[in-house]
Nucleic acid binder design. Structure first.
Lengths: 250, 250
DNA sequence: TCATTATTAATCATAAACGATCAAAAAGAA
DNA sequence: TTCTTTTTGATCGTTTATGATTAATAATGA
């Protein structure tokens, strides 16, 4: 058992239990206590843990692990159907905005070979389009680790400098009262994208339709179309407000 | 059994079991231990594995969803020594710039628990810092897929809006004539970072010292310090220009 | 307060691994 | 073939990782 391997084990246990004990470490890794001690000293010197008497603890004990839950795999079939419909709206030469919605993310797989420019604040989108024909432009600014996306005033200013032919955005809820979001950050990004885009699509599955949650940040007038799997019958109200309804058949 | 064939076998076993042992390798491939040692050293210099005493281990112990092709694993030991020295210059509260240099990338592992802000144009840096205590700010603009970093006029303007206490940057070459880069994009980013930072460190291993390549984009006056593993004796000229030399002891 | 105990740093010892150097063998070029 | 270059192996002094020992230091409790 060499140092890199031990280091890995130590860091692993530390992140799980929050602390390690020299005696227990020595026993577990089949090394002498002094070697365990030396390992911990080395890792402490590199700032990877805090040395305590007889062991070590995490540097940031109360730090909540930024858990980016990738919701995009939930109801993948429905989301893919919506995204296929969305991708069919995109032609070569388009400049498109994509936000950090979980449905929007699944659009990536369908546009990899298109000759378009994508402007996005979503890191997963950037990663996914890394090996693609698409030219990528990243919105700059502060990174929201939980959402894996960029937000803040710098991001807004950045968006305002660009103009897109189409925007593909997600929302936390949409009703005849307009668009709803669970965070102000997300709301301002959505508003900025919509304002700088010639045509704005909202991608949402049936669970978001008629859902009113937290912040009603904009009216329906800032968007042009909804792509969803919901029955168009349920969407009559939107149609009457001039919104184009595109049904994704599953 | 020639080197390319052995290399393939070694990499294969490494990806399966995560580690190789020199004795076992020598026996298995019918070569002497010293040849096995030489093979591993070669592969370590190329960044294909990490050398340990008596063997080698994988570069990426856990499979990550996205992998960045990275020169940063090449000569990892030297780069780590430089980065340890660099990390020791960083205190909580600092706002630091990091560019897309391969040495700079390895600084991430030593700053994960620091309470600092990092502003960067490098995607691998962003990815590496996503589960850290560090607050991350991404430079916005066009993504250079080859370098996995953001560049362009938007990026420059973004950088100019921020002020950092320290910048940690890489170069393709440095001599008493100044800084050298292999691309204009990279040069302009480096210049912008240095201009907006109170103190600028260049991280470079000995191979970059006195190397003059392609574009001499700036004089030594835009930087404040060099962190390197090169012998300070060779760096007298820099010292006379008022550059602080920090020797990384390996 | 002091005494007891556990932990640590410092020092040393040892075996394994290492780099440097040179020689032999293999491969390639003239 | 002969010469040169590259690869491989052997030898040997040096370095490194590890563990044992012991004195110093810090925590704990009476």
């Amino acid at each position: 058992m060499n140092f890199p391997k031990r280091k890995q084990k130590i860091i692993e246990q530390l992140s799980q239990t929050g602390e390690v004990d020299i005696k227990q470490l020595a026993a577990e890794l089949n090394i002498s206590e002094i070697t365990a001690r030396r390992d911990l000293n080395q890792l402490a010197a590199d700032g990877l843990l805090y040395r305590t008497r007889g062991g070590a603890t995490k540097v940031n004990p109360h730090e909540k692990p930024h858990s980016f839950v990738n919701k995009s795999a939930q109801n993948a079939a429905v989301k893919d159907a919506i995204c296929r419909r969305a991708a069919s709206q995109i032609s070569d030469g388009d400049i498109i905005f994509m936000d950090c919605g979980s449905t929007v993310f699944r659009l990536c797989q369908f546009i990899k070979n298109k000759k378009i420019k994508v402007i996005t604040n979503s890191l997963p989108v950037v990663y996914e389009l890394q090996d693609s024909a698409v030219s990528v432009n990243i919105i700059g600014g502060e990174l929201d680790k939980e959402r894996q996306a960029v937000h803040g005033t710098t991001a807004i200013e950045h968006i305002q400098k660009y103009r897109a032919t189409k925007a593909f955005l997600g929302v936390d809820g949409i009703s005849e009262a307009g668009l709803f979001a669970n965070s102000e950050h997300e709301a301002s990004i959505t508003t900025a994208f919509a304002a700088s885009s010639a045509f704005t699509y909202i991608l949402c599955d049936i669970s978001k339709i008629s859902k009113e949650t937290y912040l009603n940040f904009a009216g329906l007038d800032i968007i042009n179309a909804i792509i969803t799997n919901a029955d168009p019958e349920r969407l009559k109200g939107f149609k009457e407000s001039g919104i184009v309804i595109l049904k994704a058949d599953i």
